[in-house]
Design a binder for these strands. Structure first.
Lengths: 230, 230
DNA sequence: CGAGCGATTGAAAAGACTCAACCACCGTGG
DNA sequence: CCACGGTGGTTGAGTCTTTTCAATCGCTCG
């Protein structure tokens, strides 16, 4: 299979991902400023955008591709916190905290991603109140998401969490099949790879999903919703 | 034992908790504005500040006391996300998201808590950039905290989580002993009450903690740090 | 064609949960 | 003043989910 993506410069003005992003309302001058200061890169699969503990120098804007946000536990096991896709801006929390990254980010597939420097970004936030409000809103929503993530981890069985995760990923991979290694999927659900494989097999047997080699097709959303519980 | 707290009006200008809070840098006019518009209430133990799913009308500023932030799972089991103490402002996340509360908040002990209306608060955030930056920073930090919370839930044993939780709570209860019901503590650690009690007994036997009826005294921080792992 | 990694399976062990019973403390009311 | 009831805390036993470790399989890339 040939790569279906390659390096290309995307202008903010024409960026298709922008309409889904925090920058959706951005216009004229602000857009020009970003456009002329940003850089645009092609990433191969599984390349780091940033690593845990390093100092943030700017934010990453996903034009096309998928990125996992994760943190490593003691024995190096990753916990995936979030899978970001086109239109999402990655790494802006660390812009405000003044601290090193508390998480790491790697591409999950070939991706085109733009970079906006810290100073450009912060300037924009300071002067553009619409953007600012969007960011406050986004931060708040993520906070709520994570609260529910914590609750699910604490109270749900692995089977329930897998169902919920598949639903979530099915949305993120919208028109495609879910395309994650078993290990990444296990690290998202928060379980051992072997356990994940066994449960996935159960789900196949029960007709909820179908696998295409490593890709996963969701067949019965309703069923999964039932399984996932609240 | 008589109640050690009672209703009293605390002025923002004299509020001892303010120096630790997001409002620490607030001065003159802004402080006067809050002072004249806020209301100040005494809460008994285990009273709700707000419940999951209701619409936010403002923020709560803890002058004195402790508040648990939690969310309920399917069978009604609480997962405690955070224990807030004097100086913390509770409920401001929902101010920005435009959505109902995703969590609930109840007092854990008698508390004096002030209330600032949504419009007053948002006005302040809009006009006071220091406060605004403080809030962005705070939201970012909480996001990082929750990422690590998720990782701990997913990868650590209950024993390790208990050690970590006791350390955290020991800080929050600074000069006092940790004072939570066994059930609340279990709901913070994310385990069954019985399991929590058994592990707490182990910790006692191993000399890490000492219990005073329901209160918990941490004896060996270093030991707990070892136990808790990273 | 072989190496190597990701995926899969099996068996055993461990950790945590559930259920049920019991205890201890506290406030109430007789 | 004491018996009572209730709530929160504690213990025990058994079960079940999930993990761990080890081995095998199978595909893909060089």
């Amino acid at each position: 299979m040939p790569p279906n993506k390659s390096h290309k410069h995307v202008t903010c003005q024409n960026c298709l991902a922008r309409k889904d992003s925090l920058f959706c309302s951005m216009t004229g001058d602000d857009l020009d400023t970003i456009e002329s200061n940003k850089s645009c890169s092609y990433f191969k699969k599984d390349q780091p955008l940033f690593i845990e503990g390093s100092l943030p120098r700017g934010v990453f804007c996903i034009n096309d591709g998928k990125v996992k946000i994760y943190s490593r536990g003691e024995e190096g096991k990753e916990q995936i916190i979030h899978v970001a896709t086109s239109g999402e801006i990655v790494g802006f929390r660390a812009m405000f905290s003044g601290e090193p990254y508390s998480v790491a980010a790697n591409t999950l597939e070939e991706s085109n991603i733009c970079f906006i420097s810290k100073s450009d970004f912060l300037n924009l936030v300071d002067t553009n109140s619409t953007l600012r409000n969007g960011i406050l809103k986004e931060l708040s929503k993520e906070l709520a998401d994570r609260a529910s993530f914590i609750k699910n981890m604490a109270q749900k069985s692995v089977r329930e969490r897998l169902a919920a995760s598949l639903l979530l990923l099915d949305d993120i991979y919208s028109e495609d099949y879910i395309n994650l290694s078993r290990e990444d999927l296990a690290n998202f659900v928060g379980t051992a790879t072997e356990t994940l494989i066994r449960l996935l097999k159960d789900f196949k047997d029960e007709g909820f999903v179908k696998t295409h080699v490593r890709k996963i097709e969701v067949l019965d959303k309703e069923g999964l919703i039932q399984l996932a519980g609240s």
